[in-house]
Amino acid sequence: MGAEFVALSLVPMLVATLAAIACALPGNFLLLRGQSLLGDAISHVVLPGIVVAFLLTGVTTTPAMLAGALAAAGLSVALIEGLRRGAGVEPGAAMGIVFTTMFAAGVVLLEQSGAAGVHLDVEHALYGNLESLIWLQADGWAALGDPAALAALPEELPRMALVTVIVAACIALSWRPLILTSFDEGFARSIGLPVRMLSAGLVALAALAAVAAFSAVGSILVIAMLVCPAAAARLLTTSVGAQVAFSLLFAALSAVIGYILAGYAPLWLGLPAAVSAAGMIAVTAGIILMLAMLGTRPKS
């Protein structure tokens, strides 16, 4: 655990952990509201949002990508609601129609526009590029105290940290209203809580986490982290607070263990190269959920 670890593994591991935490937080409330698949939908529509933002602005800066992805998430939620209420399409199917179509549009735009050559491509969109976040200027743990080395940190790390803080702060500030509306929307409305705004805010937070996590870890890990840690924690706990706390623990564990397994396990097995870290993290999250299921008694 020396210089090589700091230069090659520390940053990806931190980014993965922060991404996992940022996604798991809103994921808890999506789960409580029976909207887990909304996270799935959001993580798919991030791609067309980013591509359109790139085509319009010609840059891949964070604000542009974020605005595009949030707009796409908003549009998808509006379309899903419109199909459900306006045309009587069943909710799950409405979601499936909207996110597959928008994803397909994103793929075609990406492949046809030449954006693929710049920064984006479909494979990155699906499983990210965690391994590329290397910190070459770091020559050991001392780099953490070296301003010159710190200045050369991959920009994904401070960005992901900022988003995680924003997501956590928003959830903390709206904690009580979120619980109230998640449990009993009718009652929440009757005491004057802005139910629609809270729902939209939750979706926006999930989208924010998804966008920030997306470029580093890909949409598959976003889905896994939106659903798996919260679901495993849900099985083990009996209060929202405990559920959220456990989900964060599971999210961080999945990220760290998954990253280590991806980087080192193939070497132990004699394979020549590491395997996909994002994929391994998703698998670890699934294994934690499986253990949680086996370790708890099913409801009678």
């Binding site: 009993d184 009996t238 929202v240 405990a242």
Partner: peptide
Amino acid sequence: PQRAAVDWDFPAR
């Protein structure tokens, strides 16, 4: 509200 309107599986006491 009607009791059936909420999910009683919600993690709360």
